[in-house]
Simulated scan of single mutants.
Amino acid sequence: MTALRAQTPHHEKMALHTALYWIRSGMSSIFLQDANTLVLNPDDLITILLHIREAFPRVERITSYARSYTIARISDDDMARFALAGLNRIHIGMESASDEVLAFVKKGVDKKTHILAGQKVVRAGIELSEYFMPGLGGKALSTESALETADAINQINPDFIRIRTLAIPETSALYTDLQNGTFSQMGDVETARELLLFLDTLNGVSSTVKSDHILNLFQDVDGTLPGDKETITAPLRSFLEMPPEDQLLYRVGRRTGIFTSLADMDDPELMNHALKAKQAHQVTLENVDRFTAEMMKRFI
């Protein structure tokens, strides 16, 4: 195996490494690549799913990304066929269900279609992850985005609600809007308020909330509704009740990788590292939003 690796081109080594990792992890799940696999002809996709099940009988889960406008055009019968063939989890990047936000970012979908697609996945018996992106509406549409998205989620009741905080690559059209003043980006405190409003507005759902991404300020916003709602929202409430200087210190610690949760602020050693990072980067209440935006670019 060592000799084989030495003779293999770099891109093939990467593929080999990925395959070995999958084998060592038990070969229990497969993620169909690309952002919208369900755009395939239904019969073709079912052929692929059945082949996967035959070739890898140990696989327990097959997952795919999909777009709402694609799913909305698929019949309930075909969705049921996908489930029967082995597709058992779909991720949809809802991001927002505000029609105004969706139109501004040219998402190519509206709230009604998001709801239709989500309900279609749930009816098929396929696990559904819906993504919410606090901050996508900017300061002007923050409240509307939170309320409209929560309303859509309430009508869908997905298995998972995944949080993905907005970050703006310099190559994106939204960055141009930011530069010319068409879009007003929110800082961490405003984003925390939007996320809390969204979570507080969820009602009648049994979804599991996950904030498992490095761009999120609070990875401990985690639990299953409705029972864990108080636990899920507790980090947000605690942060918003902090004095501004403490909020700043947590933001610096989190964005530099020192903190993983608010509880880390109880650790004197970690707090000392955060204070040193604040001093080294010369972060103040006046420039902390710019500092945060720059740090987040490292993970885009």
Rank of each mutant, 00 (worst) to 15 (best):
residue 4 L to V: 02
residue 6 A to W: 00
residue 13 K to E: 12
residue 14 M to R: 04
residue 17 H to A: 11
residue 18 T to K: 12
residue 25 S to Y: 04
residue 35 A to D: 15
residue 35 A to Q: 14
residue 54 E to A: 13
residue 54 E to L: 13
residue 58 R to D: 12
residue 65 Y to G: 01
residue 69 Y to L: 05
residue 72 A to N: 12
residue 79 M to N: 03
residue 83 A to G: 15
residue 90 I to Q: 11
residue 99 D to E: 06
residue 101 V to Q: 06
residue 101 V to S: 03
residue 105 V to R: 05
residue 113 T to A: 04
residue 116 L to T: 12
residue 118 G to A: 09
residue 121 V to W: 09
residue 121 V to P: 02
residue 125 G to D: 10
residue 126 I to W: 00
residue 128 L to I: 13
residue 131 Y to N: 12
residue 140 A to S: 08
residue 141 L to V: 04
residue 144 E to K: 11
residue 146 A to W: 11
residue 149 T to P: 08
residue 152 A to L: 12
residue 152 A to Q: 07
residue 155 Q to M: 07
residue 157 N to M: 02
residue 159 D to S: 11
residue 160 F to E: 10
residue 165 T to Q: 15
residue 171 T to K: 07
residue 175 Y to C: 09
residue 179 Q to M: 12
residue 181 G to S: 09
residue 182 T to W: 00
residue 185 Q to T: 04
residue 186 M to F: 02
residue 189 V to I: 09
residue 209 V to L: 13
residue 217 L to W: 05
residue 219 Q to R: 12
residue 222 D to S: 09
residue 240 L to A: 13
residue 250 Y to I: 07
residue 252 V to M: 12
residue 262 L to N: 08
residue 265 M to K: 07
residue 267 D to A: 01
residue 270 L to E: 08
residue 271 M to H: 12
residue 273 H to T: 10
residue 278 K to D: 06
residue 280 A to E: 15
residue 290 R to F: 00
residue 292 T to H: 02
residue 294 E to Q: 14
